[in-house]
Simulated scan of single mutants.
Amino acid sequence: MAVEAIGFEPAAVLLDMDGLMLDSERVHQECWREAAKQLDLDVDDELFMSLVGLHEDDQHERLCEQLGPEKADPLIERCDALFTKRIEAGLPHKPGLVPLLERLAGAQVTRAVVTSSVCEHAWQKLETAGLRRYFDTVISGSDIDSPKPAPDIYRLAAERLGVDPARCIVLEDSEPGVRAALAAGMHPIQVPDLVQPDEALREMGHRIVESLEQAGELITPRL
């Protein structure tokens, strides 16, 4: 079934980073599993999957609730060390990312990264993945008190860019990000990554596509 295109010229396109532009969520899952193995912890993959899209503070809280801080803290530290090495090597792009960014840049569409990652990590990921040249602005988890699904980070993005939230297109992969964009009065296009949207999220009425290529086709004018 065809998905209705965005019917206006966007003032800005705001892109999530992990799981949307970078195949980092899959890499992060590998790091969680390897960290648990190294620490001889028996942790169900379901717990690690539940961390997708969450702010680091919320991830810490969930792991402490499920494992206790005596296990959660060493696990997080070990996972962070493994993940840092993968970042330094350059995280893989999601299919269709660079052509989409080239089209947006060529059409002089304002772009920004809006991510729950802390600022220094966000710039590092973009740099090592060869994407920094496409962005002048990153709004990160370091800039707000209430992370996604609160709308704060997207409202701040619109404020910094000087654009009307109602004319912002948001590209997101996760439920918290979609809910944050909708609450900020923006137009999200979801490209699901590891976790598919459930019925409750689908009922929010936003656009859901299978790839960044399809997302690009919904952005008007045709670029």
Rank of each mutant, 00 (worst) to 15 (best):
D16A: 10
D16S: 08
M17W: 06
M17T: 10
D18H: 08
D18N: 12
D18M: 08
M21H: 04
M21D: 03
L22P: 05
S24T: 12
S24Y: 10
S24Q: 12
R26K: 14
V27H: 09
V27W: 09
H28T: 12
Q29V: 09
Q29R: 13
Q29Y: 11
E30A: 13
E30D: 15
E30N: 14
W32P: 05
E34A: 15
A35L: 09
A36L: 11
A36V: 11
K37A: 15
Q38M: 12
D42L: 10
V43L: 07
D44M: 02
D44L: 04
D44N: 09
E46H: 07
E46Q: 11
F48G: 04
L54Q: 07
H55C: 07
E56L: 14
E56N: 12
E56D: 15
D57L: 14
D58C: 03
D58Y: 05
H60G: 02
E61V: 06
E61K: 11
L63E: 01
C64D: 01
C64P: 01
E65F: 00
Q66G: 00
Q66F: 00
G68V: 02
P69I: 04
P69E: 06
E70W: 06
K71H: 13
K71R: 15
D73C: 01
D73S: 03
D73A: 01
L75V: 07
I76G: 04
E77H: 08
C79H: 08
C79T: 13
C79G: 05
D80T: 13
A81G: 10
A81I: 11
A81M: 09
F83S: 08
F83W: 12
T84D: 15
T84P: 03
R86G: 10
R86Y: 09
I87C: 15
I87F: 12
E88I: 10
E88A: 14
A89D: 13
G90F: 10
L91T: 11
L91R: 11
H93A: 10
H93D: 11
P95L: 02
P95V: 04
G96D: 00
G96E: 00
P99V: 00
P99K: 02
P99G: 00
P99N: 02
P99C: 00
L100M: 03
L101P: 01
L101I: 02
L101G: 03
L101C: 03
E102M: 05
E102H: 05
R103H: 00
R103P: 00
R103Y: 00
L104E: 03
L104W: 04
A105I: 01
A105T: 12
G106L: 08
A107P: 04
A107H: 05
Q108F: 05
V109P: 01
V109H: 01
T110M: 08
T110Q: 11
T110I: 07
R111V: 06
A112M: 09
V113K: 04
